[in-house]
Design a protein around this nucleic acid. Structure first.
Lengths: 219, 219
DNA sequence: CCAAAAGTGTTAGTGATACACCCATGT
DNA sequence: ACATGGGTGTATCACTAACACTTTTGG
């Protein structure tokens, strides 16, 4: 359990930014959706198949690319720590996983984009079950806790973490155990729902009455 | 203080969706930013100047427009309840403010986009000071509270609301009062910061230690 | 003096955080 | 028997939500 939060980067073979690492990307075809385009590009570099994909933001400043005006509609995917074969396509010198916390200098505005993505992911972590995408179907609570620690980049108290998970009520006990990381067997869990769930809690919000009343009749 | 949450719609003059109401929009020029394009289009219909603009999402499904594949990078702006002169441009039959809670049938996927925008706005309301954009510089607490009620579409307890605002510590007392909506004078406040502030609280998150400790050295 | 909106405090419940020891197993 | 990571409970504090009366003014 000494993993890391990683991002897949490709090394550019051509100018501009020749030799720099950058986010994988490419052009959207006229009759494919943005999601299809993102998946296609991802597949060119990995053999990833089922992934969580989310639109991040559209970056479109005029000077992003010295050659021409380029709009980037950025998506991010989360894949669990299983192994994928990386296959550099011909346009690219290399493909590699890099630690999010130890990045090389990136081409274009990609460092900014990555930073934006990390913030988004951290936010999502607190009110959804995105974390589920970074583990195999069955996992132990210490493993899940570790995912949170890696993304949030700080220690989490395991007792509080377990309590929180219990309250959220999103996990179910498989009857199995794992001894992957310890001699004492750890219970294996899975997420009750395969999709990503939004947790409805009442945090930090402006006043959420228990029994909402209608305001102004019709509305 | 019997206002409403409104959205600016334009009525289409031409097919497809002739006669339907739709969100104002247009094409981005080759050498303007998305924000500039959004502002330009907004200015064609109103005389709005200083506005809060935020990128919402990029909608790009293949069948959004029957004529061709169109990508829409949606932005939303918030303007305070002051009056703007609306000026329909020639491509458009009419321009009008519509209640968000009483919309006509909209062209394309614009109903979906609006719904998405409302959700975003509601979320932002709870952890930022976006509300400030919908009022003039100086305002009373009941007015601000009303903005929250309109956006969230539910009643808010005014005592709790005042307490919350006090804790957030984003308002400052002007020495003035207003009797616009009542005989008893209400104190006028203004936001301490003219920009929109993100409130750092600890809601609903997974465990935020008061004094964060470093995890794994360097990170 | 009446109507109308502004303004004000307290209590109970829930969720967040901090914290230390025992347990099951493999070696 | 010991080393390693898994698993557990409690007390404090902060925030949320519910709730009703007094104050200031204009008419």
């Amino acid at each position: 359990m000494q993993e890391d939060l990683k991002v897949l980067l490709v090394q550019r073979r051509v100018a501009p930014f020749e030799g720099f690492w950058s986010l994988p990307g490419g052009f959207v075809k006229m009759n494919e959706t943005l999601e299809q385009a993102a998946l296609r590009k991802l597949k060119e570099k990995t053999n990833v198949d089922q992934v969580y994909l989310e639109q991040l933001y559209t970056f479109a400043d005029l000077e992003r690319d010295p050659r021409a005006r380029v709009l980037t509609i950025a998506y991010y995917a989360l894949v669990s720590s299983e192994h994928f074969t990386l296959k550099p396509s011909e346009a690219v010198a290399d493909v590699k996983w890099h630690s999010m916390y130890d990045l090389p200098e990136l081409a274009f505005d990609h460092a900014y984009i990555l930073d934006y993505a990390l913030q988004r992911l951290r936010n999502k972590l607190s009110y959804t079950t995105v974390g589920s995408q970074l583990l195999p179907e069955k996992f132990t609570l210490p493993e899940l806790c570790r995912i949170y620690e890696l993304i949030l980049n700080r220690e989490i108290d395991k007792r509080n973490f377990r309590k929180k998970m219990a309250i959220m009520d999103v996990l179910e006990d498989t009857e199995e155990t794992s001894q992957k990381y310890s001699k004492k067997p750890a219970k294996l869990y899975r997420f009750k729902h395969s999709e990503i769930i939004e947790l409805s809690q009442s945090p930090h919000t402006i006043i959420q009455p228990k029994t909402p009343r209608s305001l102004q009749g019709e509305r």
